[in-house]
Design a protein around this nucleic acid. Sequence first.
DNA 1: CGTATTTCCGATAAAATTGTCTTAAAACTG
DNA 2: CAGTTTTAAGACAATTTTATCGGAAATACG
Lengths: 150, 150
Amino acid sequence: MLLSKTSEYGIRAMLHLAGIGGDEYVPVKKISQTLNISFHFLTKIFQQLARAGLISSYRGPNGGVRLEIDASKITVKAVVVALDGPDLFTQCVLGLPGCTEDRPCPLHSHWITSRKEIETMLGQKTLAEIGSDLRSGGYRLTAGAEWTDA
Amino acid sequence: MLLSKTSEYGIRAMLHLAGIGGDEYVPVKKISQTLNISFHFLTKIFQQLARAGLISSYRGPNGGVRLEIDASKITVKAVVVALDGPDLFTQCVLGLPGCTEDRPCPLHSHWITSRKEIETMLGQKTLAEIGSDLRSGGYRLTAGAEWTDA
DNA sequence: CGTATTTCCGATAAAATTGTCTTAAAACTG
DNA sequence: CAGTTTTAAGACAATTTTATCGGAAATACG
C-alpha cells in the first residue's frame, strides 16, 4: 500500500473540510460519522495535523477543527508528509539507505521517475481545487453509495 | 512505504539470483548472508515465490533455490504480486472500495496515471535485464558499501 | 456556579507485519 | 546406514500499525 491508514483517513478528512468550505469549526465527531472513521483515531490524526500547523482546533461547544491556512496553500502532499513523513518522496523503493545516483540500486533511476510523478501529482493538487471539485458533485470520500460528501 | 519488507527482500533476493545467472541451486543461507537479510524470514519469502511458480527449491547438499522460469520472463511486478498481492496496481489511493470512473474519489484520475506509471515500470523491467545490469557493475543490492552484489 | 460539549492525552487492546526458534523431512556423502 | 546439509513448516515473540477507552482540561451557556 502506498499510504498508511492514518494518511488515508487524514486526507479524506482534510478534503472533506475543504469541501465544506468556510472557516467554522467542525466537530471531529461529526466528521468521523460522515466519513465513517473511528472517532478517537481521527482525533489523533487531527492532533498531528494541528502540530504540523495545517489545522487549528477549538474546545467546547461550537468547537472542532478547521483549516488553519488557506486551502489553496495546502497540498495533499503536505498532508501525507505531516502524517506519514517524507519517506515516500525520498526513499529507495527497495529500502536501501543512501540509494543515490552514485550508489544506486538497479531500480533507482526508474523509481525516481515514478516517485517524482507521484510527488508532482500530490504536490500540485491543493485542497482548494479538490474542495471545489467536491462541491461541484460527482465525487465521493466514503465507502458507501453516497454521492459527494462535501 | 510503497512495498512491504517482504517484497523489498524478495525483490532484492530475486535480482541477486538473476545477477548470478546460471541454473544452479543457491542456498538461502548464502543469499541471506550476502544480502544481510534474516535467514528464516527469507526462507519463507522463497516459499511464497515457489508456490507462485517463480522459483524452484531443492533440499540437501548442493540444494537451494533457483529461478524456475526464464529470467527474461519474470518481471519485478510479478515478484511484487506474488508477495504483496495485486492491490498496489488495482486499489484506490484513499483505500475506497470500488473507486472507479463512475464513482471516483477526488484523486482517482490522477492516481490512475501514477499507478499505471509504476505498473508499467515494474512490469517492463525483467530479471534478465537487471541481472545483466548487475553483472556490468555499478549497482548494489545491500545497505553496505559493497559494489555490485551479483 | 453547574452542566453539557468538545478537544487533549495517556493507557490499553487488537491486528498485522516482521523476525526468531525448533523440529521435521528430504537429499547427498561416505 | 549414519551423519551432514538444506529446505519446509509451524510455533512463538517482537514490533508497528490500527483501533478503543476513560478521564482531564477547556469552553460555552444558562
